[in-house]
């Protein structure tokens, strides 16, 4: 219940920004939503299923290019984003089937390499992608429609994660994270679940990639497949709390604000400072803000898996003596 209130209130407050905030606030929030969607998608596969995914930016970039090419062919930006989401799923399905068979460092390097392959292809097939020059799109005049689409995706992902956190599916994913062999032995269809989660975690990044291209009205390989996007996303999830409902949201907001401050104060060494901030998070806050707050049990912090906890604490109907025999 508490969780639902938090989701509705934060979504409502965020929706007010275009009406009360400045142009700057609007464009800051657009970028924040992009990262919220990325962070929640990463949380599905990295936080819940426990696969260290270092290639999410591949889907972001492929989505950005798919969307940009569709828009240049005359498709409306909203349809282009949907098309990009489909392209992400279509890429993730075979890739997940292949890559999820390897674990740990192998999966991490494999996906990292995959993102680099996609970047090389974007550079190499310059007949289609214009190579390093990049693709230019018609600039958007009004940011508001874009804002609300991203708002819907971002808070859609939050709501989805809240549902997942309170479901059998979520518990099954956590079981895979803790011990995949044991989960398999308990009858959880690990392969199917992992691939499904992987595909689900690829759709939003691809769609958001296309929307980001719309926002910039430009895309090139360095922007689409930036390792910095990957690093920031994962750091946001870590800072907020991996495998929690609100962790990615908290992490994304805190990290975006910190990054924005650093950017305005120290533009020359901004990226190095972001690296240092991430290092500090890894060293000093590895369990995340939300997990920290949960341990302290502050009243406004919702417990994880609240509905399931209520279910489990229900008094069990007493067994009849017959059944005992």
């Amino acid at each position: 219940m508490k969780s639902l209130v938090i989701i509705v209130v934060s979504a409502g407050l965020a929706a007010l920004i275009p009406f009360v905030g400045s142009e700057y606030a609007l464009s800051f929030t657009v970028q924040l939503f992009v990262f919220v969607a990325l962070a929640y998608s990463w949380n599905l596969i990295g936080g819940y299923a426990g696969y260290t995914h270092f290639g999410q930016v591949a889907f972001f970039g492929v989505g950005a290019y798919t969307g940009a090419l569709l828009m240049n062919a005359g498709v409306h930006w909203l349809l282009a984003a949907a098309g990009a989401g489909v392209s992400g799923a279509l890429l993730a399905l075979p890739l997940g089937g292949a890559m999820l068979r390897v674990k740990g460092p192998f999966f991490a390097i494999g996906m990292f390499g995959m993102a680099r392959v996609c970047e090389s292809f974007a550079l190499g097939f310059d007949g289609i992608t214009q190579g390093g020059t990049g693709l230019y799109l018609t600039p958007v005049t009004d940011l508001k429609p874009l804002f609300f689409v991203l708002w819907a995706i971002a808070f859609g992902m939050v709501a989805l994660t809240w549902k997942l956190d309170n479901s059998r599916l979520g518990i099954q994913l956590l079981a895979i994270r803790e011990d995949e062999t044991a989960a398999d032995a308990l009858g959880i269809r690990t392969t199917r679940l992992k691939i499904g989660t992987f595909v689900a975690s690829a759709i939003a990044p691809a769609a958001v990639g296309s929307l980001y291209a719309t926002y910039l009205s430009f895309i090139d390989p360095a922007t689409a497949f930036a390792p910095m996007t990957e690093l920031t996303t994962i750091a946001m999830v870590l800072l907020g709390g991996m495998g929690t409902t609100f962790g990615p949201l908290v992490g994304a907001v805190v990290m975006s604000v910190v990054n924005e401050l650093l950017w305005s104060r120290f533009p020359e060494i901004y990226l190095a400072l972001v690296g240092a901030v991430i290092l500090a998070v890894v060293l000093f806050m590895p369990r995340g803000i939300v997990s920290f707050a949960m341990r302290r049990a502050w009243w406004w912090v919702p417990a994880a898996r609240s509905s399931l906890r209520r279910l489990a604490s229900r008094p069990t109907p007493s067994r009849s003596p017959k059944e005992a025999h």
């Binding site: 390792p227 190095a272 240092a276 890894v282």
Partner: peptide, 14 residues
């Protein structure tokens, strides 16, 4: 592993 991966990734950026 995710911690050390992120840390070396961050060190690389720095």
């Amino acid at each position: 592993m995710i911690m050390s991966l992120l840390a070396t990734f961050a060190l690389s950026t720095i």
